[in-house]
Design a protein around this nucleic acid. Sequence first.
DNA 1: GCATATTTGTCCGTATGTATA
DNA 2: CTATACATACGGACAAATATG
Lengths: 213, 213
Amino acid sequence: MNEPAASLGSTIAATIRQWVVEGRLLPGQRLSEKQLAEQLEVSRNTLREAFRLLTQQGLLTHIPYAGVMVARPDLAAIIDIYRVRQLIECQAVADASPHHPAIARMAQAVEQARAAREEHAWLTVGSANIDFHRALVSLTDSPRIEAIYADLCAELRLAFGLVDDPARIHAPYIESNSAIVELLKQGENQQAATRLAAYLQQSERSLLAVYKG
Amino acid sequence: MNEPAASLGSTIAATIRQWVVEGRLLPGQRLSEKQLAEQLEVSRNTLREAFRLLTQQGLLTHIPYAGVMVARPDLAAIIDIYRVRQLIECQAVADASPHHPAIARMAQAVEQARAAREEHAWLTVGSANIDFHRALVSLTDSPRIEAIYADLCAELRLAFGLVDDPARIHAPYIESNSAIVELLKQGENQQAATRLAAYLQQSERSLLAVYKG
DNA sequence: GCATATTTGTCCGTATGTATA
DNA sequence: CTATACATACGGACAAATATG
């Protein structure tokens, strides 16, 4: 009944995952087995297990006999990620009950984002925005969809990593998120879904704009 | 420019995957590392890599220091799988263009199912039904959604494996599938989605009924 | 509750195959 | 084309945890 009792491989995977989303490892960068194994003080076999997990999650790219590298999301990947987000999130909102407990978590994330914006803590604003969408997805009450979305978020953070100014990306959407919460509470699911779709489209556009530069 | 040059681990994974969907390995059955490694004539490390891949895909369950076993989908898992199917498939149909090339593939799958039904080849009927839904999902033009759905199908086959009579499960839905294709061609997406939702609900019910027995 | 046997987890050394300089 | 560096795969070894008596 205690913690998952994670194996060393998954622990290492979590570490590398952290490095990737923190930007400590950059997209396209090659990861040497021997070098990383020495640095993390694990054997190559253990490291390889971690590589397989992260490759499956889309964070690393594995080319047989050529090694693994940090995935480099291209334009097509970003478009695809947003297509999946649109499908999952809009449907989640459309089918939501006005009394679902996740709505409270969404409201809480909005408040956190507002407080962080006051202090110009843009990194926190970004995290709160992600929390908002994660809570939104949990409206579906589906463990599998939540797991899929978690992987998607990791890939997205990889893409966001190339963006220098987090304020531009996240800050303008706080009020939009707040409006979605209110609409859900009132049972106006269709309006909420429309609003969410507009947000996603705009977010995708800003991200794509950065990639063209 | 040649074949994907799959690693041995993924080759072994494909073999085990085949065994699982064929019913050669039963849900809940424990897989001994040493025994399987000898049987497949690979080292334990290579086999473990295959285990990681399949565990990530939901086909195997891994408990640290207790080994891996074939996943045993419970009632909650089946309900969850159908929730994901409903979300993905209905949205795919709702947003589909009447001229999408995937519609032709759907129609083709319906014809294959009809032909197989004539010959009472129920296994082929089942495969054609799966092809129908796979084509339906490709309406989204999203590689990630198609990959997610492929994993979902593997889990579903695991659950279907416990069902003795494939005819009961698949045969009645051929005409329903055919109706969906026609509605899509006419641009009646909402009606098609409604019809699809009814099918999924009925399919879920029959599967759950078997599990209670 | 305790000791033992089995299985998994992890690591190392080595040989082979592949890609790249 | 050759050579080097690296990933891949193997087998064996020991440590850690679990299960069984």
